[in-house]
Design a protein around this nucleic acid. Structure first.
Length: 426
RNA sequence: AGAGAGGUGGCCGAGUGGUCGAAGGCGCACGCCUGGAAAGUGUGUAUAUCCCAAAAGGAUAUCAAGGGUUCGAAUCCCUUCCUCUCUGCCA
């Protein structure tokens, strides 16, 4: 949520920012916001005046009763009726205006960072780095991972769809071991980089959904448990960032660096097609997330640090990768700047997104009421960031495809001790 | 899930209709005292919004959340959430 005071101060910047995202009516929308806010202030002032008057009267009545001047007190009581009614009216007017205002603000996305390229689709994303090593030419065995997993019997989609539905696979044997190994490896590496490990709830309440920006923007993308008002998390970002909702963090406790593994649940409504076979897109998948809460002046430094952490991880897995700076049109609703990581899957001959690292600046913290307090006691909205480090299924797909040979699939060295084997065989 | 007890400031804890944003203590900050420290002592110490160019200052709201009764609510009533104890159920 954009802070109204900043919209007022830097009106042009915000209009241009929305324009970059392809929102032509930005100026109109923001003007409406400012007008609403002005109205809000006016009503607040009026209401306070009325309440002030009535507080004074009440105190007088109290005194009169104590002095035994009943008649005078009764007389004074009569005066309060008008004030009461007035305050009731103003109050409901005010809360209407406040609701309108926050409704408007909830539906305005974050302003892109200046380095974000213009553009409305993937094609405009800027490739800022490739590759770890040459794209492998597969000779001999060149099977997409959905064939390999059957051949080596390590993932079972059929059983998954019997038990739950399409997109909920069973990992089996060495496949299951690979999942567990990667989770442990990723968590260990995050811990080495200074992240504190947490194991969060995987269901969240509505307030948390609003806090990090999934609601109302992505309502239809989350599984919703209506009986209890919960949502299944689409990413560990939601619980781990919401841990700090409504908190004021002393600056010497910063940066807050947390990591966690969770399953992630996505309905992926309407996004299925031929190019999402196998592990490319699932309703449930595992991911290790890294999350930071930082001093506003240091968030881009933190972003770089997170990007380099993810890069190191992917390098260590010996996968060809590239890093994209997302263009304004592809940028997530709450993000100011996002780097996507893609790895190359050699049999599909496609790049697969495996990580997304974002700086939200104050967009989430404003919703979360997550603030920092400096040494002088001044408060400011924190900056929040998060990144996948990493999402498992597509990493697995690339490992299987790129490392396949006749009769075996080799695993990268860093995983051997986590897996207890160095290759998958039939 | 049932029965009971609770939820007050950074923490502990008093407060059952008026002058209570809230006693007292702890913690923290600053000062005094000291050769230095401890002890002692004094002062200060919540958040949000509005008014104000800003500071100072003022106003309003906030004692889990929301609603109600009342001229007036931390205090009374209703709903929801949460915590604890016992019982049940389960891993």
């Amino acid at each position: 949520m954009l802070p109204v005071s900043e919209i007022e101060e830097n009106f042009e910047r915000f209009v241009n920012g929305l324009g970059k995202r392809g929102i032509e009516s930005g100026e109109t929308i923001l003007k409406e916001v400012l007008a609403k806010d002005k109205l809000r202030k006016k009503l607040q002032g009026k209401l306070d005046e009325v309440l002030h008057e009535s507080n004074i009267l009440s105190k007088e009545i109290g005194k009169l009763f104590q002095q035994g001047k009943k008649e005078e007190a009764e007389e004074a009581k009569n005066k309060t009726g008008r004030l009461k009614e007035e305050s009731k009216e103003l109050n409901s007017e005010l809360s209407n205006v406040q609701n309108d205002l926050s409704g408007m603000l909830f539906n305005i996305p974050n302003i892109p960072h200046e380095s974000v390229p213009k553009g409305s689709s993937e094609e405009a994303n800027e490739i800022i780095k490739d590759f770890n090593k040459a794209i492998p030419e597969l000779k001999g065995s060149k099977k997409p991972h959905w064939e390999l997993i059957e051949e080596y019997d390590i993932i079972d989609f059929e059983s998954g769809s019997k038990v739950a539905g399409a997109g909920f696979p069973f990992y089996k044997g060495k496949g299951a071991r690979l999942v567990r190994g990667m989770i442990n490896y990723f968590l260990d590496e995050a811990a080495n980089a200074g992240y504190n490990e947490v194991h969060p709830p995987i269901m969240i309440n509505e307030a948390s959904g609003y806090g990090t920006g999934q609601l109302p923007d992505k309502e239809g993308q989350m599984y919703h448990i209506e009986a209890d008002g919960f949502y299944m998390i689409p990413t560990a970002e939601v619980p781990i960032t919401n841990m700090y909702r409504d908190e004021i963090i002393p600056v010497d406790k910063l940066p807050l660096k947390n990591t966690g593994h969770t399953p992630c649940f996505r309905r992926e409504a309407g996004s299925w097609g031929t190019h999402v076979r196998g592990l490319n897109r699932l309703h449930q998948f595992d991911k290790v997330e890294i999350v930071q809460v930082v001093d506003p002046g240091k968030s881009y430094q933190a972003l770089d640090e997170m990007v380099s952490h993810v890069e190191t991880l992917i390098k260590s897995l010996e996968l060809p990768y590239r890093i994209l700076r997302l263009c304004a049109g592809d940028l997530g609703f709450a993000s100011a700047l996002t780097y996507d990581f893609e790895v190359y899957a050699a049999a599909q001959e496609r790049w697969l997104e495996v990580s997304s690292v974002s700086n939200f600046e104050t967009y989430q913290s404003n919703r979360l009421k997550l603030r920092i307090k400096n040494k002088e006691g001044k408060k400011a909205l924190a900056h929040t960031l998060n990144g996948s480090a990493l999402a498992l299924p597509r990493i697995m797909a690339a490992l299987l495809e790129n490392n396949q040979a006749e009769g075996s699939i080799k695993m990268p060295k860093v995983l051997h001790s986590y897996l207890g084997f160095s290759e998958i065989t039939k």
